[in-house]
Design a protein around this nucleic acid. Sequence first.
DNA 1: ATAAGGATGCAACGGAAGTGCATTTATTGT
DNA 2: ACAATAAATGCACTTCCGTTGCATCCTTAT
Lengths: 138, 138
Amino acid sequence: MKEIEQRLTENGVRPTAMRMLIYKYLAQKDAAIALTDIENAFAKADRTTLFRTLKTFEQKGVVHQIDDGTGVQKYALCEPGCNCELEQDLHLHFHCTNCDETVCLTEHKIPHINLPEGYITEDANLVLKGICEKCSGQ
Amino acid sequence: MKEIEQRLTENGVRPTAMRMLIYKYLAQKDAAIALTDIENAFAKADRTTLFRTLKTFEQKGVVHQIDDGTGVQKYALCEPGCNCELEQDLHLHFHCTNCDETVCLTEHKIPHINLPEGYITEDANLVLKGICEKCSGQ
DNA sequence: ATAAGGATGCAACGGAAGTGCATTTATTGT
DNA sequence: ACAATAAATGCACTTCCGTTGCATCCTTAT
C-alpha cells in the first residue's frame, strides 16, 4: 500500500483512500478494466468519483486508456517509467472475442509505419482480436 | 448508378433506392462516415433505416466498420475484391485530431505480428492519430 | 391477384460518457 | 488550533449513440 501511495504521489496524484483502492484493483487485474467493472467492485462509491479518478489517472500518466472496439473505454496501469509515447511505450492490445477481456501486450510495441507526406502521427492504437491464450486452451 | 446497383447485387444486397443513395454518398466521401453524418445528409430518411443499411452493408462486405477511438462507429466502402481478411485486406486508418476526420490508408496493410503461443488472431484494428495532410498544410 | 418476405418508419429503451452544483474532506497559512 | 482555501466526493441530471420491437409499406414470386 505504501508503494501505491508513492507511485501516485510521484505522478502528481493525491493519494486518497479511494484512489489507492482503485489503483490496487487495477494492479491485481491483468486485463483492462472498464468503468462498469470498477463500479461493480466498489458498490459503495459513486460512479462519478470512479469516472473522475480514471480520468485523473489517465491525465497524470498512471493508466492508459484502451479502445478495444467494444464501445466501452477500458483502462490499464502504465508500466513504470512509461510516458505513453509513440514508438517507445505504445504497445498493442489483444481483445478476446470469447471472454471479452482485453489485455496489454507490453512486449509488443506498435511497429513504425511510414506515412505519406503531410501526415503527422502523434498517437496510435493497435488492437488484435481473436482468442486469447486462456480461451484457446493452451 | 448502374454500377452501384450491380455492386450491391453482387454482394447479395437488394439495391433499393435508399441503399443506392447511401452507397453513392459513401463513395463520394473520402473519409469514414458516421451514422450521424448520413442522418444529416438524408434528413428525410429514418435513422433506423440508415442504421440497418450500414449493418447490412457491413455484413455483406460492402463496407467495413472503423473504430477510430472517438467513440462513434464509422464506416467506409470496401475496396473491390476486399474480403476484410487479416494480412490481406485489413489496412490502417488515420484519425485527424484537428478536423476529426478518419481516412482509410488502404495502401498500408497492418503489419504481421508474432504473438505468444495460444493467441489466435482473427481481426485487427490499427488507428494512427495526429494531423492529416489537409490540416498540416502540405 | 394474392401471399410472403424484405425494407422502411416510428417509438421507445438502455448503456455509457459527461457536466453542474452542493457537500464533504484535506491542506495551508497564521 | 483554527480559519480560509482548495481539492475530492457524491447526487442529479443530460446527452449521445446504438439498438430493438412492432407496425406498415413495397417488391417479388407464384
